[in-house]
């Protein structure tokens, strides 16, 4: 897959816009996932994910083909998300609890097709709860936890995405994990 993506990037660089479609459809879930876990609600996440892909497209010539494309793309997505979080900071703490319930938005899409059995509803509640607890982490811990556990990135790769030293990543993963442990221990 990696080689196909590399080929597609070459085509986009040559000016073939349609080659970008395959790149978007291959990475859309991961990018949307990162944005959703970072920002909390699916409308804003969709907006951010879309902007991330558009930025990747307009800046594709700055991408070094010797490096991993996903790292570069995730960096754009996390930076955009962190910027957005910073901008809305003034009202962020006041209604953090209320915001958390917006996490339900993303499940409304899942629920659209079929009626859910009882246990699945329960599991959805748990998912929403975990989602909310991740969102309650400060952004710098949230970003490492999201990249570490939702995309299973190695510490070294997280360091490259966030452009911080591996040691810092380690510390943040540890602290983020401890914070989550305290919040989820009663679940």
């Amino acid at each position: 897959m990696e080689t196909i993506i590399k080929q597609k990037i070459k085509e986009v660089k040559k000016g073939d816009q349609s080659a970008f479609e395959d790149i978007v459809s291959f990475y859309q879930n991961k990018v949307f996932h990162i944005c959703l876990r970072m920002i909390g609600n699916s409308y804003e996440a969709e907006d951010l994910a879309q902007e991330a892909f558009i930025r990747a497209y307009t800046n594709i010539h700055t991408f070094d083909e010797k490096r991993k494309f996903s790292t570069w793309l995730y960096r754009i997505a996390t930076n955009l998300s962190i910027d957005r979080i910073r901008k809305k900071k003034p009202d962020y703490h006041l209604d953090a609890e209320v915001k958390g319930t917006e996490g339900l938005d993303m499940y409304s899409q899942l629920a659209a097709d079929q009626a859910l059995p009882e246990e699945e509803v329960e599991s959805l509640e748990l998912q929403t709860y975990i989602h909310r607890e991740i969102l309650a982490l400060p952004p710098k811990y949230r970003s490492v936890i999201v990249l570490r556990y939702l995309d299973e990135l190695a510490l070294q790769e997280i360091a490259e995405v966030l452009e911080i030293p591996v040691g810092t990543v380690k510390t943040r993963v540890h602290r983020g994990r401890e914070a989550l442990r305290k919040r989820l221990r009663h679940v």
Partner: peptide, 29 residues
């Protein structure tokens, strides 16, 4: 507790991008 936490977080349902996401991106390029 730590192990349980990581399991819970790891198993958080992976979300999919909304339908027509790719088409929307392509239209906005």
């Amino acid at each position: 507790e730590l192990k349980r936490t990581t399991t819970l977080v790891k198993n958080a349902t992976p979300v999919s991008a909304p339908p027509r996401f790719t088409a929307n991106v392509m239209a906005n390029l």
